[in-house]
Amino acid sequence: MRPSDSPRRDSFGVQFARRRPVDLRVVWALLKKEFLDSVRNRWIIALSAIFIVLTLVVSYFGAAQAGGGTGFQGLLETVVGMTAIAQILIPILGLMISYAAVVGEKERGSILLLLSMPITRLETILGKFLGLGAVMLAAVLSGLGIGGIVIMAFTGTEGWENFIVFLLGAVVFALAFLSIGLLLSSLTKRRGIAMGLAVFVWFFLALLFNLVLGGVLVASGGSFLPVPGEPFTLPDWFYAAGLFNPVEAFSYFAVRAFGLGGAFGFPIELPEFVSIGTTGLSMALWALVPVTLAFWRFRRQDL
């Protein structure tokens, strides 16, 4: 009873399974279940609603802050505020939806029932990723998309192509955090630990990372103070480091997608290597690598 391709002697289920092509009917069944289960989660509904409301509020009151009187401001300026909201809420949504996807099923015992079915672990992870990805897609498109459509209805459709690119980037950004959440879920043995790690990852990537980089910048003699009359810029290494963080990559992506010369109230000149391509690649890698590692871990796991 010791098959030659067994990765680990005691691992569940898959050790005896022959390699076979992915059965799309099985993936579809998993996808539908994950979608249905998540869209009935009141926390997911609440967070998506907050996302939509904040997007509308930011665009409406953003104009007042800019000194142009209260009203819907132009789409290009508004996107800066929307990006700031998306940077905070999309990672929370992505992690919240996925942190329990594997470990939750381990705890409830349903993973054994699942693996006793004629399905493979690749199909399991793929179905979960795509099903939860569909939920993220719905949340991001409804949050940013509906906000964008409403704003365009008031201000005209100038810059809609840029907005589509921005939406695509936001979807990849959302998948990145879904992917990270799935990895945490497959690495841990308890739901509580997975949630703790998810909170830490969010805190580090969305908040702490920039503080650390800023600290390094100041310690190395740099400054965040703009020089009067010159576009604000930071050393190249600062932006290069940011490319390793999906939150920063998304921020740069938004700046590039809209061809903005500045963000968050002051002008920014991004170095050339921070492009749609590199920022998009960074987010795409974050969307693909963790979920691949999650599968790798899940495949070898004794449940």
Binding site: L36, R108, G109, S110, L113
Partner: peptide, 10 residues
């Protein structure tokens, strides 16, 4: 399986 729990929202 032992201790099987179904999915709450299905």
């Amino acid at each position: 399986p032992q201790d099987f729990e179904p999915f709450d929202r299905l």
